[in-house]
Design a protein around this nucleic acid. Structure first.
Lengths: 105, 105
DNA sequence: CAATCCGTAACCTTATGGGTTACGCTCGGC
DNA sequence: GCCGAGCGTAACCCATAAGGTTACGGATTG
């Protein structure tokens, strides 16, 4: 079974997008009744690494996205895109502080 | 007659996506006749930093994506997505080496 | 009480983005 | 032929961050 994760479009996004770890917890682990320890072992990473992601203290790395895609039969792309949206939103918060000249009109 | 069947999915892309730096060079700098030095100054980064990106030795960071969006009047998201696709393709190359157990069927 | 589960601190390694400085190469104009 | 502009990049520094191991304390449960 393939799980489809729906991501809001860039234009509709006005609020802080959730950290991907939140999605993993609520849409993957809890429905399956899998503990963090079990999931970490299945993913082949330490409990600390998974815990950091679940609690928003670490990002989804490209390799982790592939691991998630295997464990939960999803697409690695969807996980990485969620991380991208999350990172982008935070980067946009500092847009006005950047001193950048326009090169194209 | 020989029939070529093309199978391509998000999970296993056939072609190595170009590094975002290639896009910047060919679609942004060259058409505008802007030198690397000029572009670096406009973007507010060092020549070394931009050069590393243009030559595929560094990634597009979220902040850099916002800088590019200002300088070239594009969307930061598109730049970051290009980087994501690039990273993902390389991460997928090591998929079989990962020891991951399935948690969902 | 004992066993789990979990967050996380402490500590280490590796990787990477970004800055500065400096070197050598190439190329075009004078 | 000389000189400056442009460029790649090495060397070196700093900060951040992912990932690992070990260990601790708190919460929950049999």
């Amino acid at each position: 079974m393939r799980t489809t994760i729906r991501v809001e479009s860039a234009r509709m996004r006005m609020h802080n997008p959730p950290h991907p770890g939140t999605i993993i917890k609520t849409l993957c682990l809890e429905p399956l009744g899998v503990t963090v320890t079990q999931a970490a072992q299945a993913l082949g990473v330490s409990r600390k690494t998974l815990s950091a992601i679940l609690n928003g203290r670490a990002s989804i790395s490209p390799e982790m996205a592939v691991r998630l895609s295997i464990a939960f039969d999803t697409s690695a792309e969807s996980w990485l895109n969620q991380q991208t949206q999350y990172d982008l939103w935070h980067a946009e918060q500092g847009r006005k502080q950047l001193r950048v000249a326009k090169l194209a009109v």
